[in-house]
Amino acid sequence: MNNQRRAVKVHQPYDAFLVLDVEATCFQGTGFDWPNEIIEWPVCLLSWGEKEVAEFRSFVRPSWCPKLSPFCTSLTGITQEQVDGAPFFPEVARRFSTFLAQHGLIHPETGERLVRFCWCTDGPFDVRDFVISLPLWLRGDVMDVRKVVSAWSEFSRPHTPKASSRGAALPRRKSPNIENQLRCLDLSPFEGRQHSGIDDSRNIARIIIELARRGVSMVPNTHIQPGRRWPWMGKSGQILEEYCFTPHH
């Protein structure tokens, strides 16, 4: 598109964006009704006016199902050795809060937000479905970038009738993955390894930068319920015994 390089200035409501794309334990055929555990916590920090992107990345050691499935390793590229040598999530969260304080986003002692920042993910899943106990710095605004790109694409597309004279609706469009979002914005193809958390985060960051260049206002569009409970949770958040099994497919 000819307007790819045309920068459009628009007021952005946030000073910084935290781009997150976690990877988690998985078995082929399982969904969110199975207790996935985070095994990679990668974040790209975008700040207006900064020329470089700051990054935080840590592998995470799963606690209740510590052995990765071959499917999980094949999908994410994360090895058993990497998670065996990694800290559990509470320690990763502590280290990440230090990262946030070092970059001036939160107070190092109280955890209070010092600037306006928004979490950015590809879809609503990363914060909503994978982080069971939300740290204070994660209880805030979340923007589903996939939804923003979809809305921008609809707005930018030349007008076409949404229904025929008989009233038949257009086929429902699939939600665009990262690769399709890059293509939609005329950006170069996916850089790195797909389903590597840090590579996914870096590519989502590219999408956000391009959206901002095109004058898209970045606003939260995803509701996060901190106290959400899953069927496999006991009273204290632990995994119920009947869910403590290794799926076989």
Rank of each mutant, 00 (worst) to 15 (best):
G227A: 13
I208Y: 01
S201V: 01
R202A: 02
I209L: 13
A205K: 04
V216N: 01
R202N: 06
I208S: 01
I208D: 00
A205H: 04
R213L: 11
I224Y: 03
I224L: 15
E210N: 08
S196G: 14
A212I: 02
N203M: 10
Q225W: 08
A212N: 00
P220L: 00
R214E: 04
G197Y: 09
N221G: 10
P220C: 06
M218P: 12
G197T: 04
R202T: 02
G215H: 01
R229K: 14
R206K: 13
E210F: 00
I198Q: 06
R213K: 15
I204H: 06
R229I: 11
V219T: 14
Q225R: 10
P226M: 11
M218A: 14
L211M: 15
V216H: 00
S201F: 03
I207G: 08
G215S: 05
H223A: 13
D200H: 05
V216T: 08
I208A: 04
G227T: 14
I198G: 01
I204G: 07
M218R: 05
I224H: 08
R214H: 09
I204Q: 10
N221Y: 04
V219R: 14
S196C: 14
D199Q: 09
A205D: 10
R206D: 08
P220A: 11
R213D: 15
L211V: 13
T222F: 05
D199V: 04
N203F: 03
A212C: 15
G215E: 02
D200M: 09
I224N: 09
V219A: 06
D200C: 06
S196N: 14
N221L: 09
M218Y: 03
S217A: 15
N221R: 10
V216D: 00
I198E: 05
H223P: 05
P220T: 05
A212D: 02
G197V: 02
S217T: 09
S201R: 08
I209E: 12
S217R: 15
M218L: 15
T222R: 03
I207Y: 10
I209Y: 05
I204F: 02
V216Q: 02
N221V: 12
R213E: 14
A205R: 04
N203R: 09
S217V: 07
P220M: 01
G197M: 07
E210M: 13
R206E: 08
G215K: 03
N221A: 09
A205Q: 05
A205N: 04
N203S: 08
R202Y: 04
N203H: 07
D199W: 03
T222G: 03
S201I: 00
A205T: 15
V219S: 14
S201W: 05
G197S: 11
Q225V: 13
S196K: 10
I198C: 03
I209G: 00
V216Y: 01
P226Y: 12
R229L: 12
A205F: 04
L211N: 03
V219H: 06
R202D: 06
I208G: 00
E210Y: 01
I224V: 15
S201C: 13
M218D: 04
A205P: 06
R229E: 09
G197N: 07
S217F: 00
R202W: 03
R228G: 10
S217P: 08
V219M: 11
P226C: 11
I207L: 07
G197F: 02
A212G: 11
N221W: 00
G215F: 05
R214Y: 01
